[in-house]
């Protein structure tokens, strides 16, 4: 997603919304979280949630605009967001693209395809943003680790 952001940020807006943790230590922690030292309990307060979001942005040098879901999980509930999901909202405020539930149906390339269809392909190749180390890989049944896109730059272009 970071590469897609880099390619299309002059033509579309982007917003990352941090929702409740997918694999906290007190729920369904995964080995890859331990391996990558991404170990957090599920936040019980908004301050804890903000702290984890800040950790993510700082450690991953995450460049996308950022918002945090409230403790009532309103964004998660409205968008069926957990553990990870992608949308495109058009200028009229309508859903233009609704991605599937992650990690298996979380597909940034579908977003790129939407943007390409709308704005044409971007030929720019210089990676202006290089996310830091990934925190894990997708695992069956769960959003594996690092649901947020910058944390899983498993492919050459920085998208998953």
């Amino acid at each position: 997603m970071v590469k897609i952001y880099s390619d299309y940020k002059d033509r579309a807006d982007f917003l990352t919304v941090y929702v409740r943790e997918a694999h906290p230590t007190d729920e369904w922690q995964m080995k890859s979280n331990v391996k990558e030292d991404v170990c957090y309990a599920q936040p019980k307060t908004l301050e804890q949630r903000v702290a984890i979001a800040k950790d993510f942005v700082e450690r991953q040098k995450y460049p996308l605009p950022f918002g945090i879901d409230d403790m009532n999980n309103a964004a998660d509930l409205a968008y069926s967001a957990w553990p990870e999901r992608l949308y495109v909202i058009d200028e009229r405020g309508h859903i233009a693209y609704a991605g599937g539930i992650g990690p298996f149906k979380y597909d940034p390339q579908e977003v790129r395809a939407w943007l390409t269809k709308r704005f044409g392909p971007v030929t720019q190749t210089s990676p202006t943003v290089t996310p830091s180390a990934p925190t894990g890989s997708a695992q069956p049944g769960g959003p594996a680790t690092a649901a947020l896109p910058a944390a899983t730059p498993a492919t050459a272009d920085g998208t998953r």
């Binding site: 579309a12 917003l15 919304v17 941090y18 968008y79 992608l86 959003p143």
Partner: peptide, 9 residues
């Protein structure tokens, strides 16, 4: 258009 990315750490 607004691309919205939902996720956690």
């Amino acid at each position: 258009p607004l691309v919205v990315i939902f996720g956690s750490y």
